[in-house]
Nucleic acid binder design. Structure first.
Length: 423
RNA sequence: GGUGAGGUGGCUGAGUGGUCGAAAGCACAUCUUUGCUAAAGAUGCGUAGCCUUAACAGCUACCGAGGGUUCGAAUCCCUCCCUCACCGCCA
């Protein structure tokens, strides 16, 4: 969330920056400021009364010790106590409301984030490789998956409904091979520590990373235990250090985690899309970094490079775009999307979204570090997919299909897959 | 799930109603001295909020969480959470 002090000092600047996301936040900002005003005056009054009570209570204690009659004082303090309760309720209510409002305000886009209305205005930063060409009509992954008995959408629907899939045989093996390949790459070559995290999380964790309170309708929730299925490993992994004060010389912290991701995709227009493109459950290897404000910009570049490396090693054509202010995520200050080419789709698929959240998540989860001078400061958090598996699966089988429908995987996967041929 | 023990500052660990934000030790930081791969001494050393400020200072809250009793709660009562041990169950 945003720093209330920044809101107090530069409300117009805040409104202006938020405006670039689309939508008008000025009423919300003004409401926060007026609540803040009320909260502080109630708080000041309460503390003054508490101070009075502490002083008089001590007098009572000492008076009793000396055998004096303290009943008049006791009556007076009782009255003060009643007023403390009263004003305290006001202060607490204002505080709760202020927090609630602050949690619903998105992050400020980074100064370098291109201003734009929608995805159409996202600039393309770079491309790698070229669009592969075929002297036959390339099939899509659904056809290929069915040809080789790798993907069973009917079984997925039978078990859990639409937008769930069952991987079979070489399909299941390829998925597992990719998970291991990605984890090995990031832990061995890129210096991330591997994390195996719970696939469910408490509400506090989701508030910390920003999925709650605003986007609860996108989450699967187990009401009996009040736990949420994680929509991304970002949630458990970033929250690993919630409410901690880290040592500056231990930063950056770099984590890589494989988890499945669960998303309700409520109201998503694209849910009817064919195949693996948009599922309620998909696998992902996520990269998370916790760093200092000074280094977060550079860490975003290297994080993105780490994710790109995946596609380079697999020989898949991709491009990197930057999300403009109108398309950027709720908590993000700056985001690069990596899109891989899928020949069977004839389009690019987003396989990674690398974001710098600045101190936005850190404030929500009270994640700080002690700097060189011993001062506590909020960390900066980043994350990016390295990469999403389902769409990578799509790009791989569609890119490396042969005229007869067989698939010849890149050699680098051989030790993981146990060969390179499917079909 | 059952029974028992326990949750205090970075760590260990005192503290059962009042000058306790909390003894002591360790760790850490700065300084001093002796001197050299160390010892001794002094001082300092939690977090957040409020009010101010150039800054210091001051005030308030926080002893797992939330409620209650009381003029006053780390301390008494209630509920919950977590940790450990044993039992039960189980991949």
């Amino acid at each position: 969330m945003l720093d209330i002090r920044l809101l107090r000092d530069k409300p117009d600047y805040i409104k202006e920056r938020l405006q670039t996301r689309g939508g008008d936040f000025s009423a919300l900002v003004d409401e926060v400021l007026s609540i803040d005003q009320a909260r502080r005056s109630a708080e000041t009054e309460r503390q003054k009364l508490q101070s009075d009570r502490n002083r008089l209570s001590k007098e009572i204690g000492m008076g009793r010790k000396n055998g004096q009659d303290t009943s008049a004082l006791e009556t007076e303090v009782r009255g003060i106590g009643d007023r403390i309760d009263e004003i305290g309720r006001e202060a607490d209510a204002a505080d709760a409301r202020q927090t609630e409002l602050l949690l619903s305000i998105p992050n400020l886009p980074h100064d370098g984030c291109p201003v734009g209305q929608s995805a159409e205005e996202n600039p393309i930063l770079r491309e790698w490789g070229t669009v592969p060409t075929y002297d036959f009509q390339p099939k899509d992954h659904v056809t290929l998956g069915s040809q080789h008995g790798m993907l069973d959408f009917e079984a997925g629907a039978k078990l859990a409904g639409s937008a769930f899939v069952v991987y079979r045989g070489s399909g299941a093996r390829l998925e597992r091979a990719l998970i291991n390949f990605l984890l090995d790459l990031h832990t061995r070559e890129h210096g991330y520590q591997e994390i195996g995290a719970p696939f469910v999380a408490k509400a506090e964790a989701l508030v910390g990373t920003g999925q709650l309170p605003k986007f609860g309708d996108q989450l699967y929730h187990c009401s009996l235990d009040d736990l949420y299925l994680i929509p991304t490993a970002e949630v458990p992994v970033t929250n690993l250090h919630r409410e901690e004060i880290l040592k500056h010389d231990g930063l950056p912290i770099k984590y890589a985690a494989y988890t499945p991701c669960f998303r309700r995709e409520a109201g998503s227009a694209g849910l009817g899309v064919r195949g693996l493109i948009r599922m309620h459950q998909f696998d992902k290897v996520e990269l998370v970094k916790i760093t200092t404000p000074e280094n977060s910009a550079a860490e975003l570049e290297s994080l993105t490079a780490n994710a790109e490396k995946v596609l380079q090693l697999l020989g898949l054509h991709y491009r990197v775009i930057e999300l403009c202010t109108g398309d950027i995520g709720f908590g993000s200050a700056r985001t690069y999307d990596i899109e891989v080419w899928a020949p069977g789709q004839g389009s690019y698929l987003e396989v990674s979204s690398c974001s710098n959240f600045g101190d936005y998540q850190a404030r929500r989860m009270q994640l700080r570090y002690k700097d060189e001078e011993g001062k506590n400061r909020f960390c900066h958090t980043l994350n990016g997919s390295g990469t999403a598996l389902a769409r990578l699966f799509v790009a791989l089988v569609e890119t490396y299909q042969q005229a007869d429908g067989s698939i010849h995987l890149p050699d680098i996967l051989a030790p993981y897959f146990g060969g390179t041929k499917i079909g």
